[in-house]
């Protein structure tokens, strides 16, 4: 399994689309690694700066409908290339969410209230998320505060994460 803990990148907006995560002009790249420098390049969300604010982050926390738009799996890939294996949001666009789990990455939904609480408590400063996959708890700490947030993950989604993705799972089973 991949690493699902680390420093948090807060993106305080709903409906961040896959064109913003990885613009179409980079879809001509033939390897996933080549996408790395372009993560969130077209996201205009001051003071976020894609050139300096992505490096070193492992978890994205954002609002509703993250990953809407195109089906491009380049969106999860560019996150993974940059060490971001977990996105926590109010909810996700269907294809993006499926693509995350298909790659063995996690897209986890929390209630709008929990997301709001996380933003109010931790955004604006440095914060870290520690993910406990046995207890299904995120422990977020920053600015001298530590809080726990319970989460759920679908049984099948979790099997994909454990299998390392859908290709291996399906190849064995079907």
């Amino acid at each position: 399994m991949k690493n699902f803990s680390g420093k948090i990148l807060f993106l305080d907006r709903s409906d961040i689309n896959t064109d913003e995560i990885i613009p179409a002009k980079y879809l001509t790249e033939l390897t996933k690694e080549a996408l790395k420098p372009y993560c969130l390049e077209d996201l205009n969300l001051p003071p976020f700066n894609p050139k300096t604010d992505v490096a070193g982050k492992s978890v994205i926390i954002t609002r509703a409908n993250f990953g809407c738009g195109s089906s491009r799996e380049h969106a999860p890939w560019v996150l993974e290339c940059n060490g971001i294996n977990l996105v926590i949001a109010e909810n996700f666009a269907r294809i993006f969410r499926q693509n995350m789990f298909n790659c063995g990455l996690m897209a986890i939904q929390l209630s709008p209230e929990a997301i709001d609480d996380i933003f109010k408590t931790f955004a604006g400063g440095e914060a870290e998320c520690s993910t406990d996959l046995d207890k299904l708890v995120f422990t977020i700490s920053g600015s001298g505060v530590t809080k726990e947030y319970k989460f759920e993950v679908g049984k099948f989604d979790f099997e994909l994460v454990k299998a390392g993705g859908w290709v291996d799972y399906a190849d064995k089973k079907y």
């Binding site: 089906s71 799996e73 294809i95 499926q98 298909n102 993705g165 859908w166 290709v167 399906a170």
Partner: peptide
């Protein structure tokens, strides 16, 4: 339905 590359591959 639209899908990603992994779903397509399978």
């Amino acid at each position: 339905a639209g899908v990603g590359t992994t779903d397509l591959e399978v």
